[in-house]
Design a protein around this nucleic acid. Sequence first.
DNA 1: ATGGCGTTATTTTAACGA
Length: 271
Amino acid sequence: MRLATWNVNSVRARADRVVAFLERTGTDVLAIQETKCRDDQFPYLTFEAAGYDVAHVGFSQWNGVAVISRVGIDDVEAKFAGQPGFAKGTAADDDPDPVHEARALGATCGGVRVWSLYVPNGRAVDDPHYRYKLAWLEALRTASAGWLADDPTAQVAMVGDWNVIPLDTDVYDIADFAGATHVTPPEREAFEAFGGAGFREVSREHLPAERTYTYWDYKQLAFPKNKGMRIDFTWASPALADRVTAVAIDREERKGKGASDHVPVILDLAD
DNA sequence: ATGGCGTTATTTTAACGA
């Protein structure tokens, strides 16, 4: 089975390109992030015509995550247990009515529990969104540790845009990120905590080379200059990690007119 | 120090993103 993840930066602007990717690569299951639409705006027909079932959650023009599959799609969950909302107060419990955002969707496809994840950006270290990002990652770690505790043989793939740069060598110039989000010790610790919970980040297992990027900014010719970042990852349960035979980052998808700023990450799973 | 580019929306500027 071929499983991929891709932050498409608007599924409506990119639907034809996504279908072309599916057909070119023979991807069976695709987790999509940043659909940037409500459920009623999702281009279901485009994907159904190509032979895929769709599960999507989106509340506005922001965020939005989906899983599309041609090997079945069951037990859809539009959030994980304990997923926090964004509280705009200056303290974590300041806001009595946090806003729930469409950033996680789980679905079982071909026997694999796939979670399409769009981790909050954080914006700035002194912004409430930064605290939200850390709380969100911690809540996901707690939830996912529970899945493994319930079933150590579970086939789970947590895929998507993690908005964390785990290593200094995962970015074109770490000096440009002094004081910025994505590289702070708390963010990196929150990311690596999934390893502590028993998961394995299989993209680096298969693609260990430094400066192997999944994102390039639209601005200032970042892609031609290869000024990129590695922020799209797959934390796999042990049983699933053992099935991964290859991982590829599809750099071709950053080329040409109408590209997303992220490219797909593709995982091949043994039967 | 700023904004650079792309997308969206109760659009004609603002919000958001990494």
